[in-house]
Design a protein around this nucleic acid. Sequence first.
DNA 1: TCTGGGGTCCTAGGACCC
DNA 2: TCTGGGGTCCTAGGACCC
Length: 429
Amino acid sequence: MHLDLDAFFASVEQRDKPSLRGKPVIVGGIGPRGVVATASYEARVHGVRSAMRTAEARARCPHAAFLGGRFDAYREASRLVMERLQQESDLVEPLSLDEAFVDLAASPDFDSASVLDTVERIRADIAAATGGLTASVGVASSKLMAKIASEVNKPDGVFVVEPGTEADILGPMQATAIPGIGPATAERLRRVGILTVADLRSPGVDELVRLLGQSSGRSLHRLARADDDRPVMASRETKSVSVEDTFEQDISDRLQLESIIERMARSVSGRLRKNGLSGRTITLKMRHHDFETHTRSSTLPHPTDNARLLATTARRLLDGEDISNGLRLLGVGVSGLADWVQDDLFAADDDEDHATDEEVVESAPERPARWYPGMDVHHGDHGDGWVWGAGLGRVAVRFETRWTPPGPIHTFRADDPVLAAGHTGTFDA
DNA sequence: TCTGGGGTCCTAGGACCC
DNA sequence: TCTGGGGTCCTAGGACCC
């Protein structure tokens, strides 16, 4: 089974913000360079899509609510869903917060005759546990077909692929229906006249390998025939940890970039430590004003999670780079991970480097650096609500929650001490 | 008003070792 | 006295996914 929550981020927002139910909601980057992460179905009607620039989404759907996103809420909803799936089978493979494969047949009391009943029970339980989130499900004899099937009756639908019908269902579909065939591969295939999955069955393996390389060629030769025996993998190890940020305006000041690198190194270090990880390879990612993107990496003799060492190494990688025209993005990442930490002779000196993001937030004043649309807030007198709009030293808050009817909007000064932030993550904090 | 952020996997060349 | 392969590690870039 492949399960996919419908318009996940936007649905969580509509659940928690009663005034937005039934209305277009767009979650993603709010700034001038933001893009859409998820659009509610009401917004999709107007042509708004994931990965579209937020500016274009505003033009297409000006009356939508544009929200920055609350990752704590998404993670919590996701946890409830994955827990329910794990009751069904030991073999659950999450692909992201809103998607997972489940090997139903790995469960001792699996009965293929009643699989529809099982799926409907799962979907009902998920809706009950998450306050009404809907999921689309595909059931099939392979990961490939289950994933494709979950799209068929989306949203809030189920499709079961009867064994034996896989290749016939797949044949007429666009080649891009196969996960792994993106824009670049689709263009290569198009140039040799391959548009559908059925077309993809004509060339021999060797021909596909010549066209797409060993790995893609061999795997697509099989997938085109619905020949897929990839197992559902219960747990996958983290291979890298990274942060990156696109600036509202390009930055060419080296000192400013160095201080951003240090902040990012602290953030990555905090996440490594929280997960008991450390890594040897530090990568600095730079996107120039013209979108030209480079990475520079350096591998240390021993794994580390130390913020100062990560920062020093990353800063050195910036040294040789020509930044005179400005960078639009900077990122710091760590790979070559080990699930243990090198004994740190200087650990006693490094306490301040080990503060995680969370610890920083907890020790900081409750007022955030910026109010952004969608963010949870608490007001001493009016109670719980969310930021409806902010700017010019003012912040407008709608006082309603998941469990209340739609509520009123009140406006405050942005520095009003009676206003406090809830704990949420954002795309452009 | 140009094009996010967090990841995974693959390819390819060079260094280095046996 | 000119030319091996195989394997691993490192770096960089690119495609793809949600």
